[in-house]
């Protein structure tokens, strides 16, 4: 029982990260390699607001979300927009990796190297379910992730903005003919991704501790989750995230600890080779030229 909850909780975080990576990927076809760093800034800034400015959790979170939105916009303006047309160049790989490194090092200088104990939601309260100790925080991780996923899906499917995001992700030039300012849509996607990152940061930080290296290992897994599920796809992000969480938990039981990640990534590589569009491309969305559902 506890293993399942842990798998789902970790999986939800991977899903949230994959979702945020997908939000940006869908409109730009680029992978935000600085995403882990943005999550870290979300966690570090809310930590400092909570512990030093003595703010309550909600205010601290709102401010952290705001900080992350600004940070994401700056990342877009500085290391993406300046590159111009993204279809024919891959310089973003370098600029985004670079942005991540700069953010990490700045955080190291600002916040120090020492990991900080980030508070669990509901003070780490544990409730017994079927004889296992389940943390309310873990249940919250799953709930918050699912709620964000559903809200995002509704926004994307039902609103004017969502239609525009899908349009830009499919045909950026045609979207401009509709009067949609593609670069504004992309900017907003960066901002949303930053906001989601702040929330992911607050959810994962009690487990990894808040430090400038807190997302080094889970960051890579988020990319894995995104690829397993299919990039830029909400359902795929969740399927990828949850399956990765479960794979890890199963791997934990069968192989010695150090090999867990190797197993997870082996499975990721197999999925990518067999289903280049991710698990969701398997049967649902492979009609004609339309390989994977966008967003």
């Amino acid at each position: 029982m506890q293993e399942i909850v842990t798998a789902l909780a970790n999986g939800s975080i991977y899903a949230l990260m994959a979702l945020a990576i997908g939000i940006i990927y869908s409109t730009t076809q680029i992978i935000n390699f600085a995403h882990g760093s943005v999550i870290m800034i979300g966690a570090m800034s809310s930590y400092w607001l909570l512990s030093f400015a003595q703010m309550n959790f909600i205010t601290a979170m709102l401010l952290a979300v705001l900080i992350n939105i600004v940070l994401s916009i700056v990342i877009y303006k500085v290391s993406v927009e300046k590159l111009g047309d993204l279809t024919n160049n891959s310089r973003w790989i370098v600029t985004l990796f670079g942005a991540g490194i700069i953010i990490d090092n700045t955080a190291r200088i600002l916040f120090g190297t020492e990991p900080k104990a980030y508070p669990y939601l509901f003070d780490g309260k544990v409730i017994p379910i079927f004889g296992s100790k389940i943390m309310v925080h873990e249940i919250m991780m799953i709930l918050v992730a699912v709620v964000i996923g559903i809200v995002y899906q509704i926004v994307i499917q039902k609103t004017n903005f969502g239609r525009a995001v899908r349009a830009v992700s499919f045909r950026p030039d045609t979207s401009r003919l509709m009067g949609i300012r593609s670069n504004h849509i992309v900017l907003i996607c960066f901002a949303i991704s930053g906001a989601v990152a702040a929330i992911s940061g607050a959810l994962i930080a009690p487990i990894t501790f808040a430090s400038y290296t807190m997302t080094y290992s889970i960051g890579i897994k988020a990319f894995a989750a995104a690829l397993i599920g299919g990039l830029g796809n909400t359902k795929g992000a969740f399927i990828g995230g949850i399956s990765l969480g479960l794979i890890e938990e199963i791997a934990n039981m069968v192989v010695p600890g150090g090999l867990k990640d190797a197993i997870s990534f082996l499975i990721m590589i197999i999925v990518i080779i067999v289903l280049p569009g991710g698990i969701l491309s398997a049967k649902l969305f492979n009609k004609g030229e339309l390989n994977a559902e966008k967003v």
């Binding site: 842990t6 290296t213 290992s217 889970i218 934990n252 600890g257």
Partner: peptide
Amino acid sequence: KVTYKADDSDMTPVAQK
């Protein structure tokens, strides 16, 4: 003899072993 990957987020398996 229990090993794990440094910096892993979930240490429950280590504790369980």
